[in-house]
Amino acid sequence: MMSILVSAIQAVFLIAVSPLITGIVKKVKALMQHRRGADILQPYRDLAKLLRKDETVSESTSFLFRVIPFVCMAAMTLLAFMTPVFFTGILAPYGDIVTLVYLFTLYRFCMVLGGLEGGSVFGGMGSSREMMMSVLIEPALLLALMSMCVLSNGGTDISSIPTLLIALGSAAFCPALLLAAASFAITLVAENARIPFDNPATHLELTMIHEGMLLEYSGRGLALMELSSEMRLTIFMTMLGTMFFPWGISTTLEGLDLLVGLVAILVKLVVFAFLLAVLESSISKSRLFKTPNMLTASFVLALLAIISLYIL
């Protein structure tokens, strides 16, 4: 019962903290550019604003267009339930890391179909580019997570990875962990449409990927899409923080441990957000057809991680 409650709290925590993480990234980026930047709470205000608005919907869209924001949000909520945040145990067999990857696929698939709705060129453009990247992102993601399974030697169960990694202690710090984490970090950046893969702040329709697919959304539909993409970023960071560097996470349900876990994950999220902002400020967006090279690098890193585990 207690673990169900904690799981629910974890999910709510992830949903609640996602806009804040985006706010922090934006703020740090602004500071790097010598701008004052918007308040870190601005994403919440934006969401509230969007939720209050009426929607404009293209007349060439089908029922799917209206359903997609709900499904995207549902996929992210389910992922929030599945991801360990400050406590390792999870509620029930929703699935394992393989399911996790496929839920991201569900999310992306919906986004892509949403981009094709309405028949605008920019939506199709975003969808087509997103699909190009996804072909390389997903296997890399799968391999990176698989190498963690092999490293922790605990099967594909999500919650056992942090537990077993902590149990391994300093022995967990092997090349495989770093390789897998590096691969995952590249995937994080790519999957969340960040520079150098995509520019989240661009206004140029012709260069858009993620934003292009959202172009037809407005009002509350847009609010859900924005929130779910903010959640995706946070979930990825949380996964990096709990499955690759789990130290600090609580393995028991005791108050103090949970508190430590909470603080740890908050610190990790802020650090990751800061690093992401620094990364985004220090490089430019890559050429569209050079992104596969980076993704291949991520793929190879993940493959190396597993093979190094077997060989070393």
Binding site: K29, M32, Q33, K285
Partner: peptide
């Protein structure tokens, strides 16, 4: 040019 390549610091 920097701005359009998403290179925000030189652009600023």
């Amino acid at each position: 040019i920097a701005q359009d390549t998403g290179f925000s610091v030189p652009a600023a």
